[in-house]
Design a binder for these strands. Structure first.
Lengths: 254, 254
DNA sequence: CCCATCAGGTTGTTGGAACAAGTCCAACTG
DNA sequence: CAGTTGGACTTGTTCCAACAACCTGATGGG
């Protein structure tokens, strides 16, 4: 009986095919595990393995007591960090700090953020980016959880070298409309950014804060702002659930 | 016995903690399932659920007959599609088509690609980006599988409107050093790009082509090139395994 | 009529068992 | 000594069983 491919693989493949071809529409309920057991003459374990496969691929969501459903793709929000945009705001030193709230509000949805400010030693990775000594350096950390229409949307943590922002409004746990502007008022002008985007599975805490269903990876967007001398002024790390975001850049070619 | 959090959650948490704190180092073998069964006095099912949790998070890889190991993070390759780079190549109309091979070779590693060229109707998504009729439009499709040192690295599919490239070398299934240049020789100059990055779990075929271990998401980088009249000349879709890539942009702020 | 309760259905968790398939190394054979 | 074989070990697949947690809709009481 040594089939080359396991049974639950093939069951998953058949179900996936039904989803891909649209025979099972987004939002529609899949057959129950019991029904699938009968349909494929397999044990519940095998059925559950097949279903787990689909949920891990992000095609299906299951809810205890409710059933399993074809996942409907979120209308992905466009996260435009393009060059052109930052250019169009002439001489703008606005960081994306909270022009975010503005942009969301303009699109008719309701932004909300929880802000938490603390002073502490940054992760070594961040310390390196800021050119600080990982052992001794202190940073002001602004941790934000962003919601749109009460739905968790992204995590955004900003790190500033402590000596640069001591005594500024950045250290207050309130929305700051333009952290970049605050930096600028201290003569600290972000002249260029370096963005690095990586992809991974969420940690457990990220998963909880963002309410992510299984099989949802995240993009980590790390923006480091430099002044004209090449000194790093801040690092912002944004964790974006993969099912809710498109990151967009407009790039002039020449 | 109604514990609030399931047993396999807590077992996974403990193991994850060992990994996070470095008590279990990257590459090191975890205790076998049997040992864990004894250690936690749990059934094999429960242990396997805990382990699966970790593999799904990308922290652990398991091999049949070998054991389970802490996953060692790949030395991530930096995928620099920054503005500055494309600017520094004065008047360059090079797309990233195969300056890729050059860049890889310069870093002392060995690039290889399998190229497959065909003419067919593009996915509706691509047709829209190119401003073509999804029902009738034809595109020249260049599908590449890229390897570095024999390891699969990325999938890169380019779509050109068929009428734009008819009769050009782009239709030959060979490496083309500068598809952008080829376009240019027909008077088609890409004047600006729009990049869109999304994150998702790989499809099964992507998983196979790229040899991805479980728990590895991918970034999808879609670059659309436009001429100065805003006409879309091509779409390149690159699938980048999350464990092997950092996408980088340098962005001037003003 | 409205609301609380309850029964039935559904997925989640945990235990147990057996065999399959792959890996690794030691012992054996030629 | 080289190559093969075999056995022990490990993860992979599949079955069965029972209970827990949760949701939904129907039932019945106020």
């Amino acid at each position: 009986m040594g089939e080359q491919t396991p049974r639950y693989h093939r069951i998953a493949d058949e179900l996936r095919h039904l989803i891909d071809t649209g025979e099972l529409e987004p939002g529609q309920q899949l057959p129950t595990e019991h029904q699938l057991m009968a349909q494929y003459d397999a044990s519940r374990n095998t059925i559950r393995l097949a279903l787990r496969r689909l949920t891990d691929e992000g095609l299906v969501v299951a809810g205890q007591g409710r059933g399993s459903f074809v996942r409907k793709k979120h209308p992905a929000a466009i996260w435009d960090w393009s060059v052109l945009e930052s250019r169009s705001r002439h001489n703008s030193t606005h960081s994306n700090g909270d022009q975010w709230a503005t942009v969301v509000a303009e699109s008719g949805r309701k932004p909300r953020q929880e802000v938490n400010v603390s002073i502490r030693r940054p992760p070594t990775e961040v310390a390196e980016q800021l050119g600080l000594d990982p052992e001794t350096a202190l940073t002001v950390v602004r941790e934000r959880v962003r919601y749109v229409d009460q739905e968790p949307y992204a995590l955004a943590d900003s790190y500033f070298p402590e000596e640069l922002v001591r005594g500024t409004p950045l250290m207050l746990p309130e929305d700051v409309s333009a952290p970049g502007g605050v930096l600028a008022s201290s003569g600290l002008i972000q002249e260029h950014y370096q963005d690095e985007i990586t992809v991974r599975m969420p940690t457990r805490t990220e998963s909880e804060k963002l309410g992510l269903p299984a099989g949802t990876p995240v993009a980590v967007h790390r923006r480091t702002g430099y002044d004209k001398d090449g000194r790093a002024l801040r690092v912002m790390i944004t964790v974006l659930p993969g099912d809710r975001h498109i990151i967009r850049y407009d790039v002039p070619a020449e």
